[in-house]
């Protein structure tokens, strides 16, 4: 039982990270039907910026805020200078632009911050908490707590504010939204800014656990993308559930089957789910009206 709990804790922690990354994918997908492959780089910017600010003697809370602000600015700039000029292009073209942006940001980070790994100190110590024979780090609780807060905040934003509703409206039908007076260009800009901030928050939260470096976004971005697809692209709940499923199966596979197959088992599971539910667990069934 203790070992099951341990695998579960490990899975939930890792899964919550994937979920936060997946949420960022979902948000931009909603506003533009674009998959932003630079999402992982926002995590990297969040983590690395916090590390370098701390190194410069800035107190932790201020460093975190600065890192989130920087990532948001990068997100906005990405939309303004790379995505917006291509607004009349095919979705695929825009996706390729985001891949280019991710390579550019990684290269820039290598030059500015170097190629080494860095550790961020945990927010509230590293004395493990023991529950039922298994242990969990306080930092994992931070990750989980922040995930819950972020999800609640996003739910409020999308359902209770005018801007949130405008984003939702744009995601349902861009032309109609424009007709009723929604500035869809602004919606897209805000989506990029929000998802960059979200990525940075995820990157900062997990940096004490996973360490951070210029290329930390590649793998986490990929796993977050898988989480988003698994849950149904564009669905917030889907990204969360998808991330948790991915994280927990990985941990269980490593624990009960073999660490050699740790990465294979979740992917087999994903293939199965997508085979029976091609739109993901919570995806809207695509209806093409002619």
């Amino acid at each position: 039982m203790a070992e099951f709990l341990q695998y579960l804790f490990s899975g939930i922690t890792v899964g919550a990270t994937y979920a936060l990354v997946g949420l960022g994918f979902a948000m931009i997908y909603n506003a533009s039907h674009v998959i932003n492959f630079a999402q992982g780089e926002f995590l990297m910017i969040g983590g690395m910026m916090t590390v370098s600010m701390l190194g410069a003697g800035v107190p932790m809370p201020l460093a975190i805020v600065a890192a989130i602000v920087l990532a948001t600015v990068v997100g906005l700039a990405l939309e303004k200078f790379a995505v917006e000029p291509a607004r009349n292009a095919e979705v695929v073209t825009v996706i390729i632009i985001t891949i280019g942006a991710s390579i550019f940001l990684r290269g820039l980070a290598q030059v500015v911050w170097g190629k080494e790994y860095h550790a961020l100190p945990p927010f509230s110590g590293d004395t493990p908490i023991s529950i039922g024979g298994a242990t969990i780090l306080p930092q994992s609780l931070w990750v989980l707590g922040v995930t819950v807060v972020v999800v609640a905040a996003l739910a409020w934003f999308f359902n209770r504010t005018l801007m949130g509703k405008a984003i939702l409206a744009t995601s349902h039908n861009r032309d109609a939204a424009q007709l009723v007076g929604i500035n869809t260009g602004l919606v897209l800009l805000i989506s990029f800014g929000l998802s960059a901030a979200l990525g940075a928050i995820a990157g900062i939260m997990i940096a004490p656990i996973t360490l951070t470096s210029y290329d930390v976004g590649i793998m986490l971005g990929l796993k977050g993308f898988v989480a988003a697809v698994l849950g149904g692209l564009g669905s917030g709940v889907g990204a969360i559930v998808g991330g948790l499923i991915l994280g927990i199966t990985e941990a269980m596979a490593a624990g009960y089957i073999s660490s050699e197959y740790k990465d294979a088992v979740p992917f087999v599971l994903i293939l199965l789910i997508l085979f029976f539910l091609p739109n993901g667990l919570f995806g809207v069934r695509g209806t093409e009206r002619v």
């Binding site: 804790f9 890792v14 990270t17 656990i209 590649i218 986490l220 941990a251 624990g255 660490s259 740790k262």
Partner: peptide, 20 residues
Amino acid sequence: DETYGPKDTDMTPQLTKIKN
């Protein structure tokens, strides 16, 4: 005899197996 991928971020499952 456990292994982990070069980019893995959590090795507690493998270590739990070793512990047990």
